[in-house]
């Protein structure tokens, strides 16, 4: 009997030691996710290389996930089933996802901007429709589509698609109109102007570069479009930017973010996503509401 008790006691001591070591190890590596382990992050589609860079640099858990607006980010059950401490996405995905949470309890806390760039367009041929003369306005894209041009603006319904389509959609509204007055079919005609399957910015940019004929125009962050061979970059009038953000889960620590996004490899991944690291301001609540309404309208 004594022998059995001794063995059980030893096993318990080993278990306690393992727990203590795990906690200490979590503290030692500077992480600040739940339970002291490294944070778990998710990325919107197209931004996965940033998650990978963070994981490779040891700032986050290697088991990163990919999710976006819609049933995933807005469903507490989904997030609860996984330990997701932060979501790397485009602003204002967090507030937009919170609008959809059935319980009304926000899932996502205030975001931190880690990079941004004005929304711009690159075109392979000069555009000559309405609004295309300098200074170009976003109505130029609409008139170009009416003239047969194909435009890459992402998947409607994703945060990538919403922030890229927003300037074009807004340009169709007069000063006294709101998003609810949107001519949805007109905006959809832009989003569906290409015969290519819509995708995220990174994928569409690659297609634009390697497949002649796929798109006449691509819309996206100016820094990402700068230097595309055989295309002219223009930033139409209007105050539209794509801001890359880290959106923490409510209650999750944000201490790791500053160090992580100072790391060279991570900044390189941020640049590759098409934005300038360390820049950007967040959309206010009204803007988030407008984009939420836009998404609702065009995905209806």
């Amino acid at each position: 009997m004594k022998r059995v008790l001794a063995i059980a006691g030893a096993a318990a001591l080993v278990a306690v030691a393992l727990v203590v070591r795990g906690v200490l190890a979590g503290d030692d590596d500077g992480s600040s996710g739940a339970g002291g382990a490294r944070p778990v992050v998710a990325c919107s589609p197209g931004l996965e290389p940033i998650c990978d860079a963070l994981a490779d640099a040891g700032f986050v858990d290697p088991g990163t996930e990919s999710f976006d607006l819609g049933s995933t980010a807005s469903t507490t059950g989904f997030v609860d089933d996984r330990r997701v401490d932060a979501w790397i996405t485009w602003d204002p995905a967090g507030p937009m996802a919170n609008f959809d949470v059935a319980s009304g309890e926000p899932v996502w806390a205030g975001a931190e901007a880690v990079g941004s760039s004005p929304v711009a367009l690159a075109a392979k041929q000069p555009l000559d429709g309405e609004g295309c003369a300098a200074p170009m306005s976003w109505t130029c894209v609409v008139s170009s589509v009416e003239g047969g041009a194909s435009v890459a603006v992402g998947r409607i319904g994703t945060i990538d698609g919403v922030v890229r389509l927003a300037p074009i959609a807004v340009s169709t509204l007069s000063d006294d109109e709101t998003v609810q007055d949107l001519d949805v079919s007109l905006v959809r005609s832009v989003a569906e102007s290409s015969t290519q399957a819509p995708d995220d910015f990174a994928a569409e940019l690659r297609t634009f570069e390697v497949r002649a004929g796929a798109y006449d125009v691509i819309v996206g962050p100016a820094s990402g479009l700068d230097g595309v061979v055989g295309a002219t970059l223009t930033t139409p009038t209007g105050d539209f930017a794509m801001t890359l953000v880290v959106t923490p889960r409510v209650g999750a620590s944000t201490r790791w973010i500053a160090d992580a996004f100072d790391a060279e490899a991570v900044q390189e991944a941020v640049r590759a996503a098409g934005v300038e690291p360390g820049t950007g301001t967040l959309a206010d609540e009204q803007r988030a509401g407008e984009l939420y309404a836009l998404r609702q309208e065009i995905t209806r």
């Binding site: 290519q196 002649a212 004929g213 796929a214």
Partner: peptide, 10 residues
């Protein structure tokens, strides 16, 4: 012509 095709089909 490296600049062609000008139109792709789905």
């Amino acid at each position: 012509d490296p600049d062609q095709p000008s139109k792709l089909l789905q």
